[in-house]
Amino acid sequence: MTGARSAGSRTVNTVLGPVPADDLGMVAVHEALLSVVPGAEHAFDVTMDRAEIFEVLARKLTDFREHGGKTIVDSTGMFHGRDVKLHEALSRSTGVHIVASTGMGPEEMLGGYFLTPQTDPPTPWPAERFAELFTAEVAEGMVVPRVQRRAAAGLVVTAAGREGMTATEESLFRGTARTALNTGVAASVRYGSDAVGELDMVLDEKLPVDRVVVGGLDREDAVAAGAAFEVARRGAFVALDHVGLHDEFHVSDRERAELVVELVKAGFGDRVLLSSNAIGVAKGLSGHELPYSYVSATFVPLAKSLGLGEEDARRVLVDNPRHLLIPR
């Protein structure tokens, strides 16, 4: 068995196999290596030169390592550019641990197969079918198309659209929670329109609250509603995972840094996770062009200037991701 629990309770699944949790070091907990809009690989104007992709990603991972980074979590899930063999080669070449994920979402990014009703009368895919699909990627290894299963996924991820959760997205969230419950890996959910309500949906599946990450909590609407504090109060992890991005939907880095300091002062320092959602190589979409070292090299010093202590900075960058990634 390849799954998380077979390797022992103090190891974490990486693409090169289980590693001791204490070896993870500083973690970039929600990034993307290669991100491909489904179908873009077949477009006439999109090149998929694997040697070039490898070179770009190796350079970025090496920079991350030189700035103290040791582990990166690729949170793209299934079918959006996740390439396990590429990840394996990158990890061997750069010395950076890579934790890959299973899961999918939001609905608008799903392939037609997962949106095709296969029951009579027609209904969306049920949560249990998604759970079976995702659980196998943890327990038996991630699928490499037309080849085999390889390394086990170390996280299960999903997301909902901002317009409000669809029936398929509810199945995804519940299936993600069941996968986490079945395998012991954590569930990472990028909220759509109601961070607390969608957390409650996941918890309705009896998943312990400390095995859940709620992402996207540095969005303007989430910050205005105080969602990060309510999610942390419940006991889930709070992911401010668009560090470096300031657009119509997300707050500025200064506002993020102030939020981090406020969360720590409120006693929630052990619930905070930081990441950039940076995309190393993007195909068919606009890349979020930031170095993977941005959080530690640029953002954390800003937060320290606003009152974040050294011990709390280490907790956010090292301790909290480690606790999240150890299967329970």
Rank of each mutant, 00 (worst) to 15 (best):
132 E>Q: 11
116 T>C: 06
51 A>S: 14
105 G>P: 05
74 D>V: 14
10 R>S: 14
241 D>S: 09
182 N>F: 01
322 R>N: 01
116 T>W: 08
58 A>S: 15
97 H>I: 06
39 G>H: 06
103 G>L: 03
196 V>F: 07
42 H>A: 12
145 P>F: 02
75 S>K: 05
213 V>C: 02
166 T>S: 15
328 R>Y: 14
128 E>A: 10
159 A>F: 10
155 L>S: 03
126 P>W: 15
96 V>H: 09
199 L>T: 03
38 P>I: 13
118 Q>G: 14
238 V>Q: 06
57 L>C: 13
171 S>T: 09
241 D>K: 02
83 D>W: 12
242 H>V: 10
328 R>Q: 15
168 T>L: 11
30 H>G: 02
82 R>G: 12
143 V>N: 14
320 N>G: 12
165 M>E: 10
158 T>G: 03
28 A>D: 08
119 T>P: 07
199 L>W: 03
164 G>H: 12
182 N>I: 00
224 A>H: 06
75 S>T: 15
280 G>L: 08
303 A>Y: 09
195 A>W: 06
210 D>P: 08
209 V>K: 11
254 R>M: 10
296 S>V: 06
214 V>A: 04
299 F>P: 05
75 S>N: 08
42 H>R: 09
302 L>A: 05
194 D>M: 01
92 R>D: 15
169 E>D: 04
248 E>N: 13
146 R>G: 00
273 L>M: 11
140 E>K: 15
253 D>Q: 11
188 S>Y: 11
129 R>N: 13
144 V>N: 07
294 Y>D: 12
273 L>W: 07
189 V>P: 03
197 G>T: 00
247 D>F: 10
196 V>H: 03
219 R>E: 10
270 D>A: 07
216 G>A: 04
122 P>L: 09
9 S>G: 12
77 G>K: 05
294 Y>C: 06
299 F>S: 05
71 T>K: 01
134 F>T: 12
194 D>E: 08
323 H>A: 15
125 W>L: 15
184 G>A: 04
115 L>H: 12
232 A>E: 02
317 L>C: 04
239 A>I: 06
189 V>M: 14
293 S>G: 12
218 D>I: 01
2 T>E: 11
254 R>V: 13
145 P>A: 03
